[in-house]
Design a protein around this nucleic acid. Sequence first.
RNA 1: GGCGCGGUAGCUCAGUUGGUGAGAGCGCAGGAUUCAUAACCCUGAGGUCGGGAGUUCAAAUCUCCCCCGCGCUACCA
Length: 678
Amino acid sequence: MNYKRHLITAALPYANGPVHIGHLAGCYLPADIYVRYLRSKGSDVKFVCGSDEHGVPITIKAKKEGVTPQQVVDKYHKIMGDAFKEFGISFDIYSRTSSKIHHQTASDFFKVLYEKGSFTEQTTEQYYDEEAKQFLADRYIVGTCPKCANENAYGDQCEKCGTSLSPTELISPRSTLSGAKPVLKKTKNWFLPLDKLSPDIKKYIEQHPDWKPNVYGQCKSWLDSGDGLQPRAMTRDLDWGVPVPVPGAEGKVLYVWFDAPIGYISATKELTSNWASYWKDKETRLIHFIGKDNIVFHCIIFPAMLMQHGDFILPDNVPANEFLNLEGDKISTSRNWAVWLHEYLIDFKDKQDVLRYTLCANAPETKDNDFTWKDFQAKNNNELVAILGNFVNRTLVLTHKYYEGKVPEAAQYIKEDLLILEEVARFPDKIAQALEAFKFREALAEYMNLARLGNKYLAETEPWKLIKTDAERVKTIMNISLQITCNLAVLGEVFLPFTSEKLFALLNVNPLKWGGAKQTNNMPAGHLIRKEELLFSKIEDTEIDIQIQKLQAAKKKNEEQVSAIASAKTAISFEEFEKIDIRIGTVLEAEKVKGADKLLKLLIDTGLDKRVIVSGIAQFYTPEEIKGKQVSVLVNLAPRKIKGIESQGMILMAQNQQGELSVVAPVKNNVNNGAGVK
RNA sequence: GGCGCGGUAGCUCAGUUGGUGAGAGCGCAGGAUUCAUAACCCUGAGGUCGGGAGUUCAAAUCUCCCCCGCGCUACCA
């Protein structure tokens, strides 16, 4: 289909920390390359982004730092915006969701859906802090992780062992606001009934089988697997965000994932009075660049919202990337395992394009990928310096040496010249084809092939020899080399904008559009170029070692922190302790619970009786291993059904920092089944 | 356990309507060369295409089973 215009969005980064290479590689860099390409082709395109500034983590950070949420987002909005700018991410607007225009837009959007009856109201029980007099978001509740005993697990996830949790799973939960023990209290919220919308969403997804396999596959998985889509709350009990604009919603705000994608709309509004044509005209192509963590929101929830609203076009493509790892480990903000853009700029001043190049060449397009400093160095030294930089330098040096910097005339083309020119002229289309398929690695590799072609041309024609015997011929060779250099500047603008700019300056030429690179006469004879200057410089081992050491230091620091032992729980009386009845028992039989990864069904002789206990130890004990072993059994725990099996008690396990379990049992063999543990 | 994506040369990846002896870049080895940041250029070595079974005249490509990585999901008192 031929579109009149494009609207490109890049995921709104969450304003609670700076930007790292994973963000860049996964989302902002490919988006920027794509947009630069569209602009270079002369397309009507808008590129919008902004900070995502609502949600619970920001309020927590604010509390921790003793500042207001607004101060937190102001700080990171600036840091992130500056980092993007420094790396040449060419947003037409970098807005923010705390802006007035966004609040208005999001609020209006919600109202439309509300009035259309799109939402269902549901009353659920949520933890409530009676001292602070407010409902507690999952993140506001901390407690002991049932899996790894980390005392500071959040209500939605334990950051130590990575388990996702629900607040009610936490052992001894407490409010981070007041420290009080939260109580369950009823609250009403508005849900988007995705289950009912599922057929429309499915139809929409199935219209796009051309989406990247990871994206399409994951959407299908969400739609088809298990119980399918579930209703999702679009409002929250919180005081930081866009107030819910309907009666009876005091103290509630829009769910951050409801308001964030609307941020794309508000940013467009802020950018241009013509915003509606980018959002409501079927001839506009809407593309969301995101990381894989956002697929469900951009492919399912946001389109569902847009469909319900009715006025807007739907995303035509969502080319999500996978994740970038760093030196073999997952990038982690909290563990400081990251390369921060603002720090990179200090250590590698004016080397934005080197990082852009490395991240694009190694982009996690089809699967998670690894960034290593060694590879970064190799790509700089062996590719940017040796292939691209070197070709340009050879050409410029020879031009000055032979012609005092003036472009010589191509007197007469011979057959091999014509072949080269023909090949050179094909590059814009070749690269474009890859870009349009969101194959950025391939596009970049193709771009480098143009520089390779130039090097090869010089090596084969050997102008430095011919200059002594056939000076006329050399003019043509150098003319062609200069044309290639110019085209490298044109096509390089999308990948390496800083280098491209520098190159145009060296060539003393005004930047050309994409189609210009199909020409091989952009440098007219007699045109004076500037004195050569290196485009790239080698990166030495010492510079790389510094970075690696920096990471090792972060790792060491983490290990030290992890080894901290959780402090003791609050005191109980002896009477309370006496209520607990622990006995020694022997495992008679053990088998895996089918359909569950972590569960073993145990038959235990407790001395009192033989009873069935289901225990989540399958990852640490095979049935054969545990069979016949003595264990400690909490025998007076209320029975509970697990996976359809009634579990009568629990067996006690010791758990180490890694969450690994070990049976707690007598160390002498003089204890009978039924013996009490005191 | 279920679902999705992926597992191809040392590294990063191309390659499926099944069919010329399985490819590219980087790395490595050798050669050639000096205009160029010891760069470029040429040649070469290197692969049980995760493992096994099957369908077929023919499978990296189709089917089944298994293993590994990433993610979602269930279970974990």
